[in-house]
Structures are given as structure tokens and as C-alpha cells.
Design a binder for these strands. Structure first.
Lengths: 144, 144
DNA sequence: GTAACTGCAAACGATTTGCAATCTC
DNA sequence: GAGATTGCAAATCGTTTGCAGTTAC
């Protein structure tokens, strides 16, 4: 994660551009594997290591955010333009964005007693997405 | 995860009891590895598989909850007596419990436009724990 | 006695790393 | 040309699974 030698300059290679583009165009919180697959259509031969290295760099520089959900196995990525929260479908795993406004005063009050200094937050709301809820309505008590 | 044959009865073995006890006694949101290590002191020879299998069962039966944090590599476990949220130190990774009250009406309003049906939520507040904040105050601008 | 459970070791999938070749500045 | 970056393959790491032996009920 931490390179022994920090590069003195960063290069904007075709691979990095493609990864960034794919991330910006994706609305579905893709995993690194999803991103690799999509990027390979534009830059055939690109390796997984490059995708992981680039994603790590994007996250570190605040241009992307990692999302780890309770159920999912792989880390998902999100272009982090603005802070936002997530609606996670417990049935199909789909993730949608939503904004839950919690003000700093509230966070400070909650964390205060432990002397914790809050700097941000992420709310994950779990439930069922429209599609799964509808599917369930037709299959009450059945096996999902 | 889903056994081909669902057991018709469950046995309360010494291993399971030890794992459950360790989890109940742990205040620090241990990883499966942490739990294995602690349980091995009570039940020498216990294997990792047993710990993972038991934790999966505890989670499934609602007696424990999985916690996946943005940074951490391994899943952490939590005895889930009551729903609660988490203060996550971005520096040392320590996790403390906190309760952030969001009422159902709010969740419904937020999720409503997408027809998502909320059933629960988890707020992760990131920041620095008291210890790390204090350490930083003495080492301003230094390398953590 | 028998189905459930355990420990071990091998299998897995996601992610990281070492390294020689390649490319950007 | 130098240093950064890439792709590959091997290495890690957390977690799961197959299986023969053991145990709780």
C-alpha cells in the first residue's frame, strides 16, 4: 500500500485514463473485477495489478471511495464527487446513492463522551430495492 | 454458506460455547483471527474452520453481526444485542460503539423516491479516537 | 447409534508484490 | 535517459470446503 519510494511526479497513462473514465461512467458501484473487465474492452491486455494500483491511488487522492458492504465479498468503488450514503439491497446486493444529512453538531454530541473526534460519516441503509420488493410480493413465503 | 442438508438439531459443543463466550466478553470488535487466537487459549487445538463456521451461524441466527470497514482487510464481529452504530478511528482502526437515532420516517422519506424499502441502517462515523488525536497533537505535521 | 460437529489440509477468490520490459516526460 | 509504470506470475491473506475421525444427544 505504501510505496517505499514516493514518485516525484505522476504520469497520466492511457491505462489510468481508461480506469478513471470507466469509474466515472459507472453508476453501479463496480468491484475491482468489474472495472478490470470493462477497462479490458478499451485497453486490451491491461492487467489486474494496474487496476488495483490505480484504484488505490484514486482512493488515496480522494478521487474515489471504497465501499465495503456487510454481505459482499469484494470491495466496491465509487467516484466520490460529493459525500453521500448508500441504500444496499439485502437481497440482490445492488447499491444506490442517497444523501443522509447529519450535522456536525450531532456527530460531536454523540461522539463527545468518548473524546472521539469525528471527521466524516457514511450511512448504509439496508432493505430491499424496488425490483426485489416487487418480486417478493409475487412469491410470498416462497424460496427467494 | 448454505449447507446441502440443514441439520435437524443443533448441538451446543464446548467449541461453540467458547466462541460465543469470547465474543460476548470482547469489547473490541475482533476479527475472526482475533477470536480464533483468544479461543485457542481455552480450547487448545480448535481449528479456524470451526470459528468461521460458528461465527457464520451466530450471524445468521442474529446473535452476532458482521462489520466491514472501509479500511480494514478482515471482517470484524460484534455481539449484536441491540442495533448500534460505530465510531471508526481512521488512524489506528479501533472501533467504538455509539447510537445514532434515525427514525423510520426519515429513512422512508430518503429512500422513497427510489421505491427502496428500508429495513435497517448502520452509521459509520470516521475520525480519530482520543488516543490518536492526543498523539497527533504532540507530533504536528510529523509522520504518524 | 447416528446425525452433527470437529480438525486438518487443500482449495478459493480477492488483492498485493517482485521484477524485467516499456513507456512518459 | 531516468524514473515511473506496466503486465505477468508468484505470493499473500482471509475465508471456505472436502473428508475421515470424533462427539453430543
Amino acid at each position: 500500500v505504501t510505496p517505499t519510494t514516493t514518485p516525484t511526479s505522476l504520469r497520466f497513462t492511457p491505462q489510468r485514463r481508461a480506469i478513471y473514465d470507466v469509474l466515472c461512467e459507472s453508476e453501479d458501484h463496480p468491484t475491482a473485477g468489474d472495472i478490470l473487465e470493462r477497462v479490458q474492452r478499451r485497453v486490451p491486455g491491461i492487467g489486474a495489478a494496474t487496476v488495483y494500483r490505480t484504484l488505490a491511488w484514486l482512493v488515496q487522492s480522494g478521487q474515489a471511495a471504497e465501499l465495503r458492504l456487510g454481505e459482499a465479498d469484494a470491495t466496491r468503488y465509487d467516484r466520490s464527487v460529493h459525500r453521500h450514503d448508500h441504500l444496499v439491497c439485502v437481497q440482490c446486493g445492488q447499491v444506490e446513492d442517497v444523501h443522509v444529512p447529519l450535522d456536525h453538531k450531532l456527530l460531536d454530541e454523540l461522539a463527545g463522551p468518548t473524546s472521539f473526534q469525528p471527521s466524516g460519516y457514511d450511512v448504509q441503509i439496508h432493505g430491499r430495492c424496488a425490483r426485489c420488493a416487487a418480486a417478493n410480493a409475487h412469491n410470498v413465503g416462497g424460496i427467494a
